[in-house]
Design a protein around this nucleic acid. Structure first.
Lengths: 210, 210
DNA sequence: CACTTTAATAGACGATCAGTCTAATATGTA
DNA sequence: TACATATTAGACTGATCGTCTATTAAAGTG
């Protein structure tokens, strides 16, 4: 007998009508939103579930624990953000430093759109690290390292076209960039306006310009 | 009858033997430590009390609420940190940029001494701002503004002695400095080493040097 | 010395909410 | 019909939170 390849599924059907992967993805997405706004420790599973109409009893059917769920959430955000970075930083229509500016502008839009309540998931969890499981800590480091490489490559391009001094160490400069960036996002959340991000980007570009 | 000016006190004596002000101060100090390590929301009053052997029932005798207590804690830390800043930034034995380096070195010592678990209270609460009462948010902004002025003045001195370009806006640069600083402290906590702080300070000084 | 005032403590209260688990339910397959 | 599988219902334990009220222990007062 040939295995039926149709979409027919065994078991009790999900209340929402979603299939298993969709439900999982919806939960992860909800987790991204809550963790970004309230952090890991202060986000309750209850609300995360409620937001996407998945009953509480189902959580441990989809994830083994809150920690494992957290890993999926961080991974999702990392992927999403890396993609956004690539769109700008690899855009050959623009010069390298313009690409960075464009990325910053998109991020600024996001900050304002969510009323300065969200910011960057990675930056937020970073501050919470003393409360986080070790698995999360390592994952955050890996993510930041990835982003750092993307910026470093863009800065190297700028260097090759002689927009910034050859004397600069682009790897160190990329690390410097992200520290300032996370600080700027945090300050922007605190001040509830975009001035900090503007100051950060403007100053950064001014300082490295040849 | 002349009022007795001795140390005799009414009321049930404190278990610890401390007087009211000492107890209050001890609680605030304990709060600084807990809030710096775990943030405001995740720090329980219970542990803060236990650390300085003040019984739980006494908390609301000394402070009207956790929020009011938080204000005292932030104020204490702000004062402590401002003093530390002044010691370095107003030290006329050193050139302005050396003063900044010295401040950074002392902070590095502190990070290592506490095993990268504490960092900066203000930076930590900053990330938590969505969970904080508005009074705390405003207080954090004021504190950062104060620190910013101190660094700005130091940078202006550097400018006057021609160590950094006259074209730089010292106020903006000071704001830039603190965003990067808070980001570097956070990254250092995450990585559990001092490399991020080194990269931040070295790069900052390199970029602004004439 | 009785009584009041003040300072500090003891201990419990109600609420919330975490993460988890077991039993029940709803479907497909044999 | 019986079983396998997928999902849900909902309660459970245990912690912990911030807060409050009654009580205790001292000093002042007349």
């Amino acid at each position: 007998m040939i295995k039926n390849n149709s979409t027919a599924k065994r078991g009790r059907p999900a209340k929402s009508g979603r299939d298993s992967n969709q439900t999982k993805q919806a939960l992860v997405q909800s987790g991204v939103e809550y963790f970004t706004e309230f952090g890991f420790a202060s986000s309750g599973i209850d609300l995360i579930l409620k937001k996407v109409s998945v009953p509480k009893g189902s959580f441990y059917h989809y994830f083994a624990s809150k920690e494992v769920f957290g890993i999926a959430v961080i991974e999702e955000y990392s992927r999403y953000f890396a993609k956004k970075l690539d769109i700008h930083l690899l855009n050959e229509n623009n010069k390298p430093l313009i690409r960075i500016t464009n990325f910053a502008n998109e991020a600024k839009d996001g900050m304002a759109r969510y009323n300065f309540k969200r910011g960057c998931l990675i930056g937020n969890l970073e501050q919470e690290v003393t409360l986080l499981p070790e698995s999360h800590r390592l994952q955050l480091l890996t993510t930041l390292d990835d982003w750092q490489q993307k910026i470093a490559r863009c800065l190297e391009l700028a260097q090759h076209e002689n927009s910034i001094p050859a004397s600069l160490d682009c790897k160190a400069l990329a690390s410097f960039f992200w520290m300032g960036w996370e600080g700027a996002i945090a300050k922007s959340k605190l001040a509830k306006n975009l001035t900090p991000i503007d100051i950060f980007i403007d100053t950064f570009l001014q300082l490295i310009a040849k």
